[in-house]
Amino acid sequence: MRGPDIQWYVVLSALLFTTGALGVLLRRSPLIILLSVEIMLNSANLLLIAFSRLHGREDGQIFAISVMAVAASEVVVGLGLIVALGRRHIELDVDKLRTLRG
């Protein structure tokens, strides 16, 4: 294989995942949180593809495609919720959206 070895991709994936996680934890707008979740999913995809290349089998790529489909579905539902919130003129701030408080 040409270029960097697999561990480079693994480290990159980890960095991406951490970035996405920080975005989920530290941002207030649900839109940005959703985008950060996308980053995390993509980092997982990268890892899958990398290991698929390592083992010489495409199963990892199949998994990655399924992840993409699921991510798309989840974005649909998440955006639907956000649009519903926006229509009711509720402030898009997860600090204020506390009805799940136990």
Partner: peptide
């Protein structure tokens, strides 16, 4: 009950 504050981020932190 302090853990049940309704903030998504704190639940996410717990997950993490």
């Amino acid at each position: 009950g302090l853990a049940q504050n309704g903030l998504v981020r704190s639940y996410a932190l717990a997950l993490t």
